[in-house]
Amino acid sequence: MSRTVLITGTTGTVSTALMNALEGADAGLRTLVRDESRAHGLRERGAEVFVGDLDDARSLPPAFEGVHDLWLLTPNGPRAPENSMNAVWAARQAGVERIVRLSVVGAAHDAPNRSGRLHALSDREIERCGMRWTILRPHWFMQNLLNEAGSISSTGTFSLNMAAARLGMIDVRDIAECAARVLLDGPDRHHGQTYTLTGPRSLTFDEVADALSRALGRPIAYLPVSDDARRKTLLGYGVPRWIVDMLEEYAQAYASGWQDGATDAVATVLGHPPRDIADFVRDHAAAFTQT
């Protein structure tokens, strides 16, 4: 019998990729959106759409009724543990069998960033929720590089406040494929597992620039900048101050060597290695090319 999967964070990068990864699978897809205006495209893809908000626990029960598996992705922000708590409670009340939760790399009560500490609270709740569960902790998304596409296209450079950090960065498509595999494998196979998902190797941004140079056929350079310079840029784009502070904490941690390394978790789940940076830049070359 087909299982019903409720996907939260539906319009975000990872959940969108998850919808792609689940296309054609033997699963009933249900999505939770905050705004009815976002529902049309999801219905065209064959998903049931329910309007609800993780900020509002009272809005959630209809979406959870009859669900077997919950894909839980909460918005980045100070209310993330509350959002997760609301979803877990709605899932428990509705008799959901399993939660597959997207956490973050290095989530821990002593993480050097507020996001990691907040996610640790929700991870612990999931571990004790009484349902089957799996937690995915992905590293820095390769897709974050698309935020620098304009600069790369126009100037051949990109600037981050990461100094010489080395990161086990991962393609979001691999995160989504891992999530899809866990969801489709059934509720027992991955129960109680926490997977730290990375790419095949740890990279510096100079190595990323080299990969971009080879793919685009022109020189691309990484230009490290200070925290203050990056903060000014992000605030100028309208990024909320809380997010800017959080990103700065991550950058400082990465620059200090925190989370330098790679795991075999993707290969364990999927049976094949994750995409390398060369695969990512080749597949997204058009985004980095001025039109």
Rank of each mutant, 00 (worst) to 15 (best):
A21V: 02
L247R: 09
R201N: 07
A165V: 00
D276A: 10
D185N: 12
E65T: 12
C178F: 03
Y250C: 08
R241C: 01
R124W: 08
A253D: 12
R214C: 11
R137V: 02
D55Y: 11
R101D: 07
D55K: 14
G12K: 10
S154H: 02
R79E: 08
S151P: 00
E148Q: 03
N147C: 00
I7C: 15
P240K: 03
T155F: 00
G186Q: 10
L73Y: 07
D185W: 07
D188P: 08
W258P: 11
L70Q: 14
Y237H: 09
F64D: 03
A251D: 06
N86S: 14
N161G: 13
L216M: 08
V208C: 02
D188W: 06
R45L: 10
E23F: 14
V67G: 15
P62S: 05
A25F: 02
N76P: 06
A94N: 13
L18M: 14
N147K: 00
R114N: 06
T289F: 10
H284W: 06
D260W: 03
T204P: 10
R38T: 09
F50G: 09
H190F: 12
L102P: 04
D227W: 02
T291N: 09
S226V: 13
G52Q: 07
V5D: 06
Y195Q: 07
T16I: 12
P62A: 07
W133V: 04
R98W: 01
H68D: 15
L60I: 12
I135L: 05
L247E: 07
G168I: 06
L183E: 05
R124P: 02
T4S: 15
S226K: 14
L247N: 08
L102E: 02
V208Y: 01
H191P: 03
D174I: 00
R58C: 04
I220L: 02
P62R: 08
R34C: 10
R98L: 02
R137A: 04
L247K: 08
K232N: 14
D69S: 13
A108Q: 03
A108V: 01
A221S: 09
N113Q: 04
D206L: 06
G12H: 12
I7S: 15
M131Q: 11
A286D: 09
